[in-house]
């Protein structure tokens, strides 16, 4: 029987056989690994554990043990890069370039003051307060292309960033929020739906007081007069003419600030926001008022 006959025979066989469909399709042989181990004299041989020794007996050495050597983890001197890492605060970065992109795409309204809540609302920034992340670190990447006039509140900013924003006639404030307040700013709708009263913002911890009271870092607890002096100083240092915001048409927007105890713009601590009936419950009790104003 020649090869031509074989070909014809197999082709005729192929014609009579049913076509491949979802009904008769199956895996290639041995393409699936069985999850049962073989038993018996030859079926269950070594089961992948090899011959003799710790492999076969599954009594592996403890982690890091190097059979009589001075082990690696004791040979190298300790360097405490991560000492206290569980206490350190993290500020996830947002670049000025990204901020400009958000503004260009109209995902944030520059006619209103920008804070962490509005940046999260834009969908281009996110963070987790439960991972000890304390808000935005605005970084200087794209400082030379930045061209928006904004009133922004961030949690950390460098000198270059402050200069880039003030050069364009904007205002920047660095403000501290405690993790609970950040949780509310991250998802205000969820908080309003819980029906709780808006809490007070806590004051910064002792090691941050210096940063947030200093006019150089535009802290929210700094003296406004000192800040205006520092604005002029920074303009001289970086060599730009400082736009006069007092004569600006958006002066009311640019001068809008939150109270150090306030979490949301325009909403005072102690209020309960009812989203369903679109009303606000405001406390009148003297005890509550004094508590929230303290």
């Amino acid at each position: 029987m020649g090869s031509r006959q074989i070909t014809e025979k197999s082709l005729s066989m192929l014609r009579s056989l049913p076509r491949i469909s979802l009904q008769n399709i199956r895996d290639n042989p041995n393409s699936k690994l069985k999850n049962k181990r073989g038993r018996g004299q030859h079926g269950g041989d070594k089961h992948g554990a090899g011959n003799k020794g710790s492999g076969q007996r599954q009594n592996f050495m403890r982690l890091g043990y190097e059979t009589g050597n001075n082990p690696f983890y004791l040979r190298i001197p300790q360097e405490h890069y991560y000492r206290g890492h569980h206490l350190r605060r993290e500020y996830p970065p947002l670049t000025l370039h990204n901020l400009q992109k958000i503004i260009d795409k109209d995902c944030v309204d520059t006619s209103k003051p920008i804070d962490i809540a509005s940046l999260i609302r834009s969908g281009f920034y996110n963070f987790s307060p439960d991972l000890k992340q304390f808000g935005i670190n605005l970084t200087d990447e794209g400082a030379d292309i930045f061209a928006a006039k904004i009133n922004i509140e961030v949690q950390w900013a460098s000198e270059q960033v402050i200069a880039a924003i003030e050069k364009n006639g904007g205002v920047i404030t660095t403000a501290y929020y405690d993790p609970h307040s950040l949780l509310l700013l991250k998802n205000p709708k969820k908080f309003f739906e819980s029906g709780q009263a808006i809490p007070r913002r806590m004051i910064p911890p002792s090691d941050l007081i210096e940063y947030y009271t200093s006019a150089k870092s535009r802290g929210y607890l700094a003296d406004p007069e000192e800040i205006s002096k520092e604005r002029v100083k920074l303009a001289q240092k970086y060599g730009y003419t400082l736009p006069n915001i007092e004569k600006d048409s958006d002066y009311t927007m640019l001068s809008e600030r939150k109270d150090p105890r306030q979490i949301f713009y325009g909403l005072e601590p102690g209020w309960v926001v009812n989203l369903k009936d679109e009303c606000i419950l405001k406390p009148k009790d003297q005890e509550l008022l004094s508590y929230y104003n303290s």
Partner: peptide
């Protein structure tokens, strides 16, 4: 506690 309900507030 004494409180007031402000309907259609300006702060909305």
């Amino acid at each position: 506690y004494d409180y007031e309900i402000v309907k259609k507030p300006a702060e909305w």
